[in-house]
Lab assay of single mutants.
Amino acid sequence: YFQGQLNAMAHQIQEMFPQVPYHLVLQDLQLTRSVEITTDNILEGRI
């Protein structure tokens, strides 16, 4: 994955969860590489 793709995914998640800091979303995406998994992590309070 290149950074631009991760940034696009992070923006997509931020639209759904504007209360979660962008850098935390991006940090999780770098591990998961998945909008779905990061979204689940937010919903389950891991982020």
Rank of each mutant, 00 (worst) to 15 (best):
44 E>G: 11
27 Q>T: 08
33 R>D: 05
40 D>H: 15
46 R>G: 03
7 N>V: 14
8 A>D: 10
27 Q>I: 10
11 H>C: 11
10 A>S: 04
38 T>M: 03
23 H>D: 10
6 L>H: 03
42 I>V: 05
37 I>E: 10
1 Y>C: 14
16 M>K: 12
7 N>L: 15
41 N>P: 01
14 Q>S: 13
30 Q>F: 14
45 G>E: 04
23 H>C: 13
17 F>Q: 01
12 Q>P: 01
23 H>S: 09
1 Y>M: 12
8 A>N: 09
37 I>V: 11
14 Q>R: 12
25 V>L: 10
43 L>I: 10
33 R>M: 14
13 I>M: 04
7 N>I: 15
11 H>K: 14
31 L>T: 10
44 E>N: 15
15 E>G: 09
33 R>E: 07
21 P>L: 06
20 V>C: 09
16 M>S: 07
5 Q>S: 10
20 V>I: 14
13 I>A: 01
45 G>T: 02
1 Y>A: 13
27 Q>L: 12
22 Y>N: 04
32 T>N: 03
26 L>W: 10
30 Q>H: 10
29 L>I: 07
28 D>E: 03
46 R>Y: 06
17 F>N: 02
6 L>G: 02
5 Q>L: 13
16 M>A: 08
9 M>F: 09
44 E>A: 15
41 N>S: 04
1 Y>L: 12
37 I>K: 13
6 L>T: 04
47 I>R: 02
46 R>L: 08
27 Q>D: 07
38 T>N: 01
6 L>P: 02
44 E>I: 09
11 H>P: 01
13 I>S: 01
37 I>S: 07
39 T>I: 15
11 H>E: 09
41 N>K: 06
6 L>C: 08
17 F>Y: 08
28 D>I: 06
46 R>I: 06
3 Q>F: 06
36 E>Q: 12
45 G>C: 08
10 A>R: 03
16 M>H: 07
45 G>F: 06
37 I>F: 07
1 Y>E: 13
41 N>I: 02
31 L>N: 11
13 I>L: 10
12 Q>W: 12
37 I>H: 08
22 Y>S: 05
5 Q>P: 08
1 Y>H: 11
27 Q>H: 09
26 L>C: 09
18 P>N: 04
1 Y>T: 12
38 T>W: 03
12 Q>I: 13
40 D>I: 15
36 E>N: 08
4 G>S: 13
35 V>W: 09
30 Q>N: 08
47 I>K: 01
41 N>T: 02
45 G>L: 05
21 P>E: 08
16 M>Y: 07
31 L>G: 06
27 Q>S: 10
23 H>P: 06
45 G>P: 01
19 Q>S: 11
4 G>M: 13
1 Y>I: 14
34 S>W: 04
17 F>M: 03
45 G>H: 06
31 L>H: 11
6 L>F: 08
5 Q>G: 09
43 L>G: 03
31 L>E: 11
36 E>K: 13
31 L>S: 09
11 H>Y: 12
13 I>C: 03
10 A>P: 00
10 A>W: 07
44 E>H: 14
41 N>Q: 01
24 L>P: 02
47 I>F: 08
12 Q>G: 06
1 Y>G: 13
46 R>T: 05
3 Q>A: 10
14 Q>A: 12
22 Y>D: 02
39 T>Y: 07
7 N>S: 13
4 G>T: 11
